[in-house]
């Protein structure tokens, strides 16, 4: 094969052009931040960090059992107990987020949250974390099972809603994401009633 043959050279050039344009486009699409050592005075530049390409940002919430694994969720919860569970949070919004999980107990399906509205049930517990882009967190929680005694023996839904802190207004904004767990509400053994 002669490298300088016109056809061979054209093929090589085509490959090089496509490769270099793809590489340049990939670099141009990525977000970068400059890393500074803030403890030095003035802050010392230390390099760059790529945030990757954030075509469409999203947040995620997941409900795990007390060992932070999927499955083996409690099917019965006891009035007045503090139920151990684990919540998974993930931030892929392209910027840091302050995320809050609000725990509620819902007895009626009409009180369930939707993609746009949170549940009107009272907040029984809140768990707040700050996550950088592309960072996740596992939160071990002990949620308070508080409900009217009239619900004992029936089904309740444990709802965990994801809220984020809005930097412009300073208020919490419902993300439209939630997870829930259906369980039967019972009285603690030995608690009477």
């Amino acid at each position: 094969m002669r490298l300088l043959d016109e056809e061979v050279f054209a093929v090589i050039m085509a490959l090089v052009v496509v490769g270099s344009v793809l590489a340049a486009a990939t670099v141009a699409r990525q977000d970068y931040v400059a890393v500074y050592n803030a403890s030095a005075t003035p802050p010392r530049f230390e390099g760059y960090r790529s945030l990757g390409v954030v075509a469409e940002g999203f947040t995620a919430i997941g409900l795990l059992n007390e060992h932070c694994k999927i499955g083996e969720y409690p099917q019965v919860v006891f009035l007045g107990e503090r139920l151990p569970l684990c919540i998974y949070l993930f931030n892929y919004e392209g910027e840091p987020l302050v995320m809050q999980v609000r725990f509620k107990i819902v007895a009626n399906t009409t009180e369930m949250p939707t993609n746009t509205t949170p549940s009107p049930a009272p907040v029984l517990a809140e768990y707040t974390r700050a996550l950088y882009h592309n960072q996740s967190a596992l939160i071990h929680v002990r949620v308070p099972i508080e409900a009217p005694p009239s619900l004992v023996g029936g089904n309740v839904t444990l709802v965990f809603e994801l809220w984020t802190l809005n930097p412009e207004t300073g208020n919490w904004t419902y993300t439209g994401r939630w997870v829930h767990l259906h369980a039967r509400l019972q009285v603690l053994p030995g608690a009477g009633g």
């Binding site: 931040v33 400059a34 890393v35 500074y36 803030a38 960090r49 840091p96 700050a130 950088y132 960072q135």
Partner: peptide, 9 residues
């Protein structure tokens, strides 16, 4: 474009 990983953590 200032890295805030450490501050966020």
């Amino acid at each position: 474009h200032v890295d805030t990983t450490e501050l966020t953590m």
